[in-house]
Amino acid sequence: MNLNPETLSAVKNLIYSTADDHLVLGHRNSEWTGLGPILEEDIAFSSMAQDKLGQALALYQLLNKLGERDPDTIAFTRKENEFRCCHLTEYPIGDYGFSLMRHFLFDEAALLRFDMLSNSGFTELSHIAKKFRGEIKYHVMHAEEWIKQLGNGNEESNRRIQIMFDTVYPLAHGIFEPLENENILIENKIYEGENELEQRWRVRIGKIVKDANIILNETEPKDKHYGGRRGMHTEYLKPLLLEMTEVFSIDPNAEW
């Protein structure tokens, strides 16, 4: 597929947003390594971190093919306002309930996103999306299992998972902040758009939280946590990037 400059720029924007989400959340997930509440969860979050970094890398490699800089340069040298991740991915890991709820709400969206993109008219993206959805299926399976178990567990587990849902659900709407020029992507059948994705996600989430005995309240305006896709971030991204790029900043040629 030959992309004209306008379409190319919109495609890159989409890939940057998706890749940055995975890089930043991958980094957050990796912070559970060694700290997970039980061994299996420690390994689960570490494995999901590894998947997400791999997915970010593949997307950065695609950007590189499309004329952007090499993956390490993209990941480790951009300034905070050049990142396109949504706010949800930036927040510190918090307690395990927060991380679990974020994982649930984000990965459900990621699975639907890659499902959509596997039909993309931009073939290179569709190949990657087909691969990723097989991987993320395991993330979603893991999240749903816990959400249902805790939601239907005892009074305390239900109360705590409800608090986390109320906290994280509004934040998750930032995932679907419309992308600049996404109408071009929709017209060219490259991507069906954030609005369509959000609709599908709401249906999916609605069904699962019902099964999990969690009450869904729409209390905040959905654009309250927008900004990430335009380079405006929470106070948490900067320290994350400083930590993530620490080795690279000391020695760009270091191998690890």
């Binding site: 299996e40 390994i43 689960a44 494995s47 998947d51 991987e135 395991y138 893991h142």
Partner: peptide
């Protein structure tokens, strides 16, 4: 199934 995540990405426990 104990965990879909094992010692490597391609293994479940």
């Amino acid at each position: 199934l104990m965990s879909a995540f094992g010692a490597t990405q391609c293994r479940a426990v």
